[in-house]
Amino acid sequence: MRKLLFFIPLAAFSILGVLFFLQLGKDSQYMPSALIGKTVPDFNLVSLLSDEILTQEDLPNGPFLINFWGTWCPACHIEHPYLMALAQSGITLVGIDYKDEKAPAQRWLVEKGNPYQMVLMDEMGRFGIDMGVTGAPETFVVNRSGIIVYRHQGEINEQSWQQLKGYLK
């Protein structure tokens, strides 16, 4: 019995070892959204293209993507062509022009093309806070029943799309 006591440290360390092994290689930066499993929060935002006030009633019937972007954000430039390609393949995108100004944002869409079915202006970033956004670009997947099922931080490209697309149904 007394002998067994001396194995306690080894046992405790083994458990730690397994824990570390499980955590290795995981992306410690990855942050799941707190909104997963919930509907899109209420909003009253002005449309960038038509100047009318829109609410969640006006959101398309799922499944669709909500993409936060801004003309100030370098990664959004890189991401844009890929979004255009997605839109062309029939994916519905809702854009949120996040912490941005109207004129350059409109120019951006004219120059680079508009992949979005609707674009809402979130000049102060309040809707961004409601969605738990920490920067741009960020993309949420909303499924057929209007529930948020996935969030991706950073640009969308071929690689991240492979992960996202599974949720889009």
């Binding site: 001396f6 440290p9 080894l10 360390f13 083994s14």
Partner: peptide, 10 residues
């Protein structure tokens, strides 16, 4: 660590 704790236990 594991090696030395094993040695210790023995």
């Amino acid at each position: 660590v594991g090696g030395s704790l094993l040695l210790y236990a023995v």
